[in-house]
Simulated scan of single mutants.
Amino acid sequence: MQTADTVIEPIAAATGAPTWSEAEWAVRKDLAAAYRLMAHLGLDDSIYTHISVRVPGRHDQFLINPYGMLFRDVTASSLVKVGVDGLLVEPSDYDVNPAGFTIHSALHMARHDATCIVHTHTVGGVAVSSMACGLQPCNQWALQFYHRVAYHDFEGIALNHEERERLVRDMGTEHKALILRNHGLLTIGATVAEAFINMLNLERACRVQVAIQSAGQITQVVPTDVCELTARQYEEGASNRLPGAADPHAREWRAMKQRLQPGSTVPYDA
């Protein structure tokens, strides 16, 4: 029987690539699935934006996409392992997007509950991030983030490592969603599933808001007590776990991965 410390050898290991623990291989597969799902749902931005996950058992290393590879082509074994010092931990034919490193390293270092971080540039997300009003409590998806989303002002492309302090300050210690003004969206989670589902709901909330405003309609006001109730219902619902499941979002995550049917390209878990 395999244990958490069992070292497995994925296909790539036969060619001399690194081998990983069972725990790391599991998060690699989940992270690769998240990249493929982002592409499948049209939430990617060419080779830009990023999803990262902390290496199990480490607080100074995380996995991120190879800079220059389309999300649709990311695999578990192609992910790049980088330290919070910016140096690659294992050899790779790819490097890491510098802006992605700035953003993700900041939050991985400061928020130990940020096992996974998702950052997007979508039309809906960038549109709402560019609105002075920010995210409005105008639909059920948005109410998940009622008084639970932070904002960070645009400082240009995130190449200045000094910006990390302000990212951490603006994110705070409790929020799991951040709207990067004039830039895009960011969510965190204790698992890939949680961070991904948080992003999916935040993206939907933004799309609905843009649709309402584009139609020139007046938003139906939701009473503040109902807004807070709904936000708490989301939080309480996250604790309704499948029997034996460590991840409260396992049910939806398992369903989402069913979209990734085998095709002509290399499977995400290779």
Rank of each mutant, 00 (worst) to 15 (best):
D45S: 15
D45W: 10
D45N: 10
S46P: 00
S46K: 13
S46M: 14
S46N: 11
I47Y: 11
I47F: 10
I47N: 06
I47S: 08
Y48W: 15
Y48H: 15
Y48A: 15
Y48L: 14
Y48D: 12
Y48P: 12
T49A: 15
T49Q: 08
T49R: 12
T49P: 04
T49H: 13
T49G: 13
H50T: 11
H50A: 11
H50W: 15
I51C: 10
S52R: 04
V53P: 00
V53T: 14
V53M: 06
V53N: 05
V53F: 13
R54N: 00
R54Y: 02
R54E: 05
R54T: 08
V55Y: 04
V55F: 07
V55T: 03
V55K: 06
P56N: 05
P56F: 01
G57R: 08
R58Q: 13
R58G: 01
H59R: 09
H59C: 08
H59D: 14
H59N: 12
H59T: 13
H59A: 13
D60V: 07
D60F: 08
D60L: 00
D60P: 09
D60M: 00
Q61N: 05
Q61E: 14
Q61I: 05
Q61D: 09
F62A: 13
F62M: 04
L63Y: 06
L63Q: 02
L63K: 11
L63N: 07
I64Q: 05
I64A: 14
I64L: 09
I64R: 03
I64P: 10
N65C: 11
N65M: 11
P66V: 12
P66T: 02
P66D: 08
Y67P: 01
Y67C: 04
G68E: 12
G68H: 10
M69P: 03
M69V: 15
M69K: 09
M69A: 14
M69H: 02
M69C: 07
L70E: 08
L70R: 09
F71L: 10
F71I: 01
F71W: 15
F71H: 13
F71C: 14
F71E: 12
R72A: 14
R72N: 09
R72K: 12
R72G: 02
D73N: 12
V74H: 12
V74A: 02
V74G: 04
V74F: 12
T75P: 04
T75V: 07
T75K: 05
T75C: 11
A76L: 00
A76M: 05
A76T: 10
A76I: 09
A76E: 00
A76Q: 09
S77A: 13
S77P: 02
S78Q: 07
S78F: 01
S78H: 00
S78Y: 01
L79G: 02
L79A: 02
L79D: 03
L79N: 02
L79C: 06
V80H: 01
V80S: 00
V80L: 04
K81W: 02
K81P: 04
V82F: 11
V82S: 03
V82H: 01
V82D: 06
V82M: 04
V82T: 03
V82P: 06
V82G: 08
G83E: 00
G83Y: 07
G83F: 03
G83S: 07
V84D: 10
V84E: 01
V84L: 15
V84K: 01
D85I: 04
D85C: 08
D85E: 08
D85Q: 06
D85S: 11
G86E: 05
G86L: 09
G86N: 07
